[in-house]
Design a protein around this nucleic acid. Structure first.
Length: 432
DNA sequence: GCCGTACCGGCTTACTAGAT
DNA sequence: ATCTAGTAAGCCGGTACGGC
């Protein structure tokens, strides 16, 4: 499908508040007159067979791109917002089922002449319906050829539904361990910055900004102004004789969404020789007031020591973890009375609910990242997985995951860095 | 008063497109 | 190639509420 033209004036606007309200509501069935599968038809057969297929061993052979393609087609349709909410709260099967239902609704929309929709929306709906019908047909037909076809459809129409919305992104690793960069004696760590070499921009959080520029706090508030050039120093461990290199002319400004950013920092970021894929750098203040950016991210908000006097769960380690290797291979956990097994090295949970237990032990369909599993267990509204997910203690008791790891291993959870897939996902076929 | 749960607003982050 | 800024996912902090 051709990428729709996007201009400043025609940019699609999304009512985030309305979408959030939609996503927090339970799903409601479509009105009876809009049920796409109310009467038997050839099209109905092809579509309605998808959901049963998902529950069979065929799923192991069929690439989930078929499901992704169906959901992606739905995202192109006018009811994408509802599907999006479902992706947050529902299981893979439910998302697929909803996508099928939405596609039927879109077909109905086509039959009714697109109703009150504008031309562009109607065109998108038609494209979505066409792609979805192909994908659903491929999934229903089964077999390797169908999977390839569905994958291709998903590649073209998939956008963000392909991995992110279906919970297939890689797990977040645990980050950080206390340390202090050599050569920055007496410096105070102000926090971490996100460095984007792609755009030559440094992104300080508000906390880091406030720590680094306490005199500019008022300017950075909503309605304030902030646009000035600053000087930063790069900490180069490869040049011990001259460890600090000056970079001036870095522009600090505040965006329309009240976000502080530092641009024109390409040379500085490059001088740090960041490891491949690294996006974090640390910001330090020397005793003389100079601000130093270091490629070392350790020492700024990593692991915390175990709480003084905390009682460790019986049977757990009494020494603090210094790496992922010190953590248990697996851990029994519960969430909303649903049992599961946490794999700390991948930071995923193998669900043990009755439905998932029917799947094979290694089936990816029963493996969840913490937040999706929280939703899967019906506690999605809690939105604090490290509290709603509890570690099962040897004596049969339980303890919130956050508390358990802090007391038993001296570590806590930090937000991971989303992994950018290789190559351009939505570029032309010639793109790598 | 403490604790667990539920909810909401808003912040952080990753990603992207258009402009320069 | 770089700059600028919009979008949305993820989820945390703060708060209210009920049970003990």
């Amino acid at each position: 499908l051709p990428r729709p033209a996007r201009t400043a004036t025609a940019r699609p606007r999304v009512d985030v508040a309305a979408a959030a309200r939609r996503s927090s509501r339970p799903l409601r069935p479509l009105p009876e007159e809009q049920q796409p599968f109310g009467e038997p038809s050839e099209g109905r057969y092809a579509l309605s067979q998808v959901e049963p297929l998902l529950r069979t061993e065929f799923l192991e052979r069929l690439d989930t791109a078929a499901v992704a393609a169906a959901a992606a087609a739905a995202s192109l349709a006018l009811l994408a917002g509802l599907a999006e909410g479902a992706a947050k709260q529902q299981s893979l099967e439910q998302v697929a089922a909803l996508a099928m239902r939405l596609l039927g609704a879109v077909r109905l929309l086509q039959q009714q002449g697109a109703g009150t929709c504008g031309d562009q929306q109607a065109q998108q709906a038609q494209q979505g319906a066409a792609a979805g019908q192909q994908a659903a047909g491929a999934a229903a037909a089964g077999g390797a050829m169908a999977a390839v076809e569905a994958r291709e459809i998903g590649r073209v129409a998939g956008r963000r539904w392909s991995r992110k919305a279906l919970g297939l992104a890689s797990a977040h690793p645990l980050e950080g361990a206390p340390a202090h960069p050599a050569g920055l004696h007496g410096a105070d760590c102000l926090g971490l910055l996100r460095a984007s070499l792609f755009s030559g921009t440094l992104h300080p959080s508000k906390a880091v900004f406030n720590a680094a520029f306490p005199d500019d706090r008022a300017a950075a508030k909503p309605g304030g102004s902030l646009d000035r050039l600053i000087t930063l120093y790069a900490h180069e461990t490869a040049a011990p004789g001259e460890p600090l290199r000056c970079f001036d002319g870095i522009r600090m400004y505040i965006t329309g969404s009240n976000e502080v950013r530092m641009s024109r920092a390409t040379a500085l970021i490059r001088s740090l020789s960041l490891p491949p894929g690294a996006t974090r750098v640390s910001l330090w203040r020397l005793p003389d007031g100079r601000l130093v950016v270091s490629s070392l991210t350790e020492g700024c908000g990593g692991a915390q020591p175990a709480a003084s006097g905390a009682r460790l769960p019986a049977g757990s380690s009494t020494s603090l973890a210094t790496s992922d290797a010190d953590l248990p291979e697996c851990l029994k956990v519960t969430c909303n009375e649903v049992s599961g097994t946490l794999l700390p090295d991948r930071m995923v949970v193998v669900c043990g609910c009755p439905s998932c237990s029917q799947l094979g032990q290694g089936d990816p369909a029963r493996t969840f990242r913490p937040t999706p599993w929280e939703c899967h267990c019906g506690a999605g509204a809690y939105k604090k997985w490290n509290k709603s997910i509890k570690a099962v203690l040897p004596d049969g008791g339980s303890m919130p995951l956050h508390t358990f790891f802090l007391r038993a291993y001296g570590v806590t959870f930090t937000r991971g860095t989303r992994v950018r897939p290789p190559g351009k996902v939505f570029g032309s076929a010639a793109d790598s």
